[in-house]
Amino acid sequence: MTAIRLEGLSKSFGPVDGPVLEDVDLTVERGQFVALLGASGCGKSTLLNIVAGLEEPTGGSVTVPAEGAALMFQDAALFPWLSARRNVELALELRGMPRAERPERARELLELVRLAQAGDKRPHELSGGMRQRVALARALAQDREVLLMDEPFSALDAITRDLLHEELLRIWRATGRTIVFITHNVGEAVRLGQRVLLMSSRPGRIVQEWDTRPWKDPDAYGFEGNAQSLDDTLGELTRTITARLREEISRHAA
């Protein structure tokens, strides 16, 4: 089952500037976790906005679930006048859930992101990591098959980000969503994504793809049980991808 299919997608903002995206082909199966990796200005966010329906492509075709996709931003973008719970409830309301069912569902979602205790707090009373978890709960409240995440952890400190990676993977397994996760952090991409897609800059296109699953779960893929720990194997993959990313960036030096 395909969740997202992009064919020959391109986007340019004006006739003078070169295309931001050029000839992007991408197929994401349902339930997959795809990490989209690229340097600044490679059109990752534009690509995500097109998939989310916030922008129109100038060429090619986009196939996404009819109901659209949930989207999470770099900053939580919570409504500051509403408590964490009411933020989630508003998402439920806008999706058309009857009033009587909202409090229970909002409680479940806050529990899922381990914030059941903080439901009555306003966004400004929460830490950055907690706000992103409320934003995640709010995105999940939309009940859409596809969840798009636009560098959601890039403004957080390293410790918080580390823990939220675990949390996100847990929630992904629990909910079975299809996730497209944008990042400029190779380690993050490798750790989270089943597939890591590397994008080039100006024009943005997908230049290489890695499948991390055999690295993370050697047994299932018939790899020889080796002495290396997961950190070591993923570290190797991270180095490989970083080298490729740098090569891609240095193309722009001339």
Partner: peptide
């Protein structure tokens, strides 16, 4: 981004 968030939420 608040308008954007509202838009994304429907």
């Amino acid at each position: 981004q608040l308008r954007r968030a509202g838009h994304v939420l429907g």
